[in-house]
Amino acid sequence: MAIAIPGSAYSDYIVFIDESGDHGLKSIDANYPVFVLCAALFNRREYIEAICPALNTLKMDFWGHDEVILHEHDIRKPKNQFAFLQDVANREEFQEKLSGFLAWARFKLVFSVIHKDRYVERYQVPRNPYDVAMSFVLERVFLDLHSKGQTNKRTKVIVECRGANEDAQLGEAFARIGGGENACGRPLPFDLLMIPKLSNSIGLQIADLCARPMGIRSLRPNQANRAYEIIAEKIRRDQQGRAEGWGVKVSP
């Protein structure tokens, strides 16, 4: 009897989800009152054969090794391994190379942006913003995979561990949404994988780098935002180029 090859039940795609800001509603940062959940969808073969080697090469060029984990916050407010970015020339060179990589790499983005100040004003008993955001991004990723004929196989969804209680809540929410409590009205073919914060995941690093530019864009749409301009074409859109409701949901 033939034995299934490991991995043969999986789709051609893989999803990484990261966030910008926090989803807490008790204390809201007036300077950044949003919670952004970003899902980055990659073709698995392109991810492993092209995207990962390219970003690791960039790391090798600047650090001499590929163990550095790129975080948007560390790049924006450089210290420790990123202290060399305090020099203007170094920063410009690094930003140019990183921007070039992000522009070149092929992946698709789905965002949920929740303006927490408006959210608590509108709802007396608001749902957990993380649950609301996760519902949207999983639904839209499913619809995109459906358009590619990929929903007859399982797709891995990778997120970062956030702590025992938070991970348990996320697991429960993911199970509810994936089990059928979603706008698609059907079970979603996703498998959740939570990995440690120190895992050197290229996909999670890319999702992290893309999340805050979307938050800034939503807060201050008229502000110059080069990072958003680089990733804008990667956002899921309809045939007319509209992102709202397709690859971006801003609530409320």
Rank of each mutant, 00 (worst) to 15 (best):
239 Q>E: 14
162 R>P: 04
139 E>Q: 13
237 R>A: 15
249 K>L: 11
164 A>S: 03
132 V>R: 11
78 P>F: 00
224 A>T: 07
172 E>N: 02
207 A>E: 05
1 M>N: 10
68 V>D: 04
34 V>T: 06
36 V>S: 11
125 V>C: 06
29 D>F: 03
170 L>F: 12
162 R>I: 05
67 E>K: 14
130 Y>M: 11
221 P>T: 11
131 D>Q: 13
20 S>P: 13
119 Y>R: 13
82 F>H: 04
118 R>L: 07
205 Q>P: 08
247 G>R: 03
6 P>C: 07
80 N>H: 08
199 S>P: 00
134 M>F: 04
196 P>C: 10
13 Y>S: 14
182 N>P: 05
88 V>H: 12
103 A>N: 07
207 A>Y: 08
23 H>A: 14
225 N>G: 07
144 D>V: 02
249 K>W: 08
97 K>H: 15
186 R>W: 00
6 P>T: 08
26 K>G: 01
108 K>I: 01
8 S>V: 15
201 S>T: 01
175 A>W: 10
93 E>P: 00
231 I>H: 02
83 A>K: 02
64 G>H: 03
232 A>E: 14
104 W>T: 08
73 H>L: 07
240 Q>I: 11
19 E>Q: 05
162 R>Y: 04
118 R>V: 02
252 P>W: 13
87 D>W: 01
146 H>Y: 02
55 L>I: 15
18 D>W: 01
70 L>N: 08
20 S>E: 08
29 D>M: 02
126 P>Y: 09
161 C>W: 07
230 I>D: 05
77 K>D: 03
140 R>H: 13
196 P>E: 11
241 G>Q: 09
156 K>C: 04
214 M>T: 08
183 A>Y: 09
164 A>D: 04
12 D>N: 15
13 Y>T: 06
68 V>K: 05
156 K>F: 10
189 P>W: 12
221 P>A: 10
45 R>G: 03
90 N>V: 03
57 T>M: 13
177 I>W: 03
117 D>Y: 03
66 D>T: 12
200 N>H: 06
166 E>A: 15
144 D>T: 06
108 K>P: 00
94 F>R: 08
221 P>E: 11
119 Y>K: 13
121 E>M: 08
61 D>S: 14
157 V>K: 09
